[in-house]
Design a protein around this nucleic acid. Structure first.
Lengths: 199, 199
DNA sequence: CAACTAAACGGACCGCGGTCCACTTATGTT
DNA sequence: AACATAAGTGGACCGCGGTCCGTTTAGTTG
């Protein structure tokens, strides 16, 4: 016995070498396609072809197109999580919870401005729109900030309601179709938070 | 000259007799399919076949699957509009604007409970999710109620942000996946409105 | 090194949304 | 009644997301 063989609950065995290699190839190919031809050009066939693998492999790795998009966003998402969990104020711990909430919204809006198209593509599927682990983290974060700010009430649902106007699809619509500026969206977010947390 | 031939801006000529007949057939067929086999069974082919017309006709009439779903919701949507524009309080004019806002949210949530699946299918397309006339009416309504309630700030964006948590896809998720009750959602909505309109 | 097995692979296949265009028909005019 | 034409029609066709399953291969065991 070389290892203690503890149950390792929740930790599944690492994927095989070729699988990991193909995952990288696929992510690179997808990112390249987004960069040079836009998100609409990221079809599963195109990605598979560009990565030099079969279509089935793409689905085996990512489950669906939304899953692939989600994986593409994973890096940014983790960065944001790091920032609001361990980074400097006002996003990270140490600042007033209300200021942290405001900073959180600003950060999200800024990300939409850069990666909105991919985020929208990722939101197209139900399981990744609400059931994604990343979303759960955001909800918990907002809940804890609301609590820390002394807000009374149904924190869980209030958090969902506050997160809703930050959805990429809506923000993108406000930016592109309605011609609103990032500053205006940020100001409206701050106003919303101040109203909700007031008293 | 039998008619004054005024420009009639914004009023396009009525559709031909056979076209109107087929529109009805298609809507009936779609509604029937929803009722007996669920919204997923409402494929464009199935609807066309059940209505006894070609597939092209369905797209000519409704533009897309989302458009068809939207048309299916049109009746309910108009009813709601009538209610909050001309109906009795608290939804209609006469009541306190804050109470009207609260009633509006309750009404929307109740509709999701009944027609949520179809609404979700209708929300899948961009042009019908935000650019739909029905949505514009809702936004204007909320804006005017906010104004009437004496709320200061960016009414347009605040209205969008308040409407966001009422989106069918999210409400459906909260009801079905998270197991929340309609009452809880209604209470959270009321709480949100009171917070936002306070001071 | 040979044998074995679970994992990964790939591409044919399917169904659906959406487009296109040659053909048909309703409707108003002379 | 014959005509003109704009509107409507239908179904072949396309591309994409997603599934399936026979084949290949990486990693392990003796």
């Amino acid at each position: 016995m070389t290892s203690p063989l503890l149950p390792q609950i929740g930790v599944d065995p690492p994927e095989r070498g070729d699988a990991a290699r193909n995952r990288r190839r696929l992510l690179d190919a997808a990112a390249l396609l987004v960069a040079e031809r836009g998100v609409d050009a990221v079809t599963m066939d195109a990605v598979a072809c560009k990565a030099g693998v079969g279509k089935g492999t793409v689905f085996r790795r990512f489950g669906s197109r939304s899953g692939l998009m989600h994986a593409l966003l994973d890096h940014t998402e983790r960065e944001l999580q790091q920032s609001f969990m361990f980074g400097p104020p006002p996003l990270g711990p140490g600042a007033d919870p209300i200021d942290r909430l405001i900073a959180f919204g600003h950060a999200r809006i800024a990300i939409v401005e850069v990666q909105g198209e991919v985020q929208r593509a990722a939101e197209n599927s139900l399981e990744f729109r609400f059931a994604a682990p990343a979303r759960a983290v955001s909800v918990r974060h907002v809940v804890s900030l609301l609590r820390a700010a002394g807000v009374q009430g149904d924190h869980e649902l209030l958090a969902c309601s506050l997160l809703a106007p930050l959805e990429a699809t809506l923000v993108l619509h406000e930016l592109r179709d309605l011609g609103m500026s990032v500053e205006r969206l940020g100001a409206a977010w701050e106003d919303l938070i101040r109203r909700v947390t007031r008293c």
